[in-house]
Amino acid sequence: MTSEAPGLWPPSGPEIVFLLLGLVALGSALMVVTTRQLVHAALWLVVCFGALAGGYLVLTAEFVAWVQVLIYVGAIVVLLLFGIMLTRAPIGRSADLDSGNRWAAGLVAVSTAALLVSVVVAGFGAAYTPLEPGRGSAEELGSSIFRTWVLPFEALSVLLLAALIGAIVLSRTDIKGRE
């Protein structure tokens, strides 16, 4: 993209920060899928989402980062924790959180990773872009959403409404299906 692209190594300052955050995200994600305690999985998920939000900040997408923190860390994880509680999951260690499928799953996951990494390295190994702060500010994104993307935005609000009604219908026990 740019002619004065520096080499991959040594990484610049932002890159080092991003890589560290990425490592934290990956490690906590691994903990999410391997931990033997259900509640810990949710907490590791918080760590992972937070690290990702930091990554977004490094990438100059500040509005997305705050939305990530607000919605994912604040709302979704809490929702998941509610779910864990409501299904009377054991709080302590439980031995059988993995199904018998895990070796096949591991194989598929590793090959997926190998395939994707090799593809993206081959495709974007030389891509470089200088970071310009301010491009992902709330102002920029807000004007873009409410000018260009206002119609999908409204459609999404309808989707949310439908999801709301659907969740209510599914959760309530006194609403019976048509006989």
């Binding site: 991003f18 890589l19 990425g22 799953a105 997926t112 390295v121 974007f124 470089y128 872009t129």
Partner: peptide
């Protein structure tokens, strides 16, 4: 910022998600 760093992180994260689903 080299594009390949975040993209590789994203690919690995996706694979971890795949493992978790399966």
């Amino acid at each position: 910022m080299h594009v390949v760093y975040p993209v590789v992180v994203s690919a690995l994260l996706f694979s971890i998600g795949v493992y978790g689903v399966l």
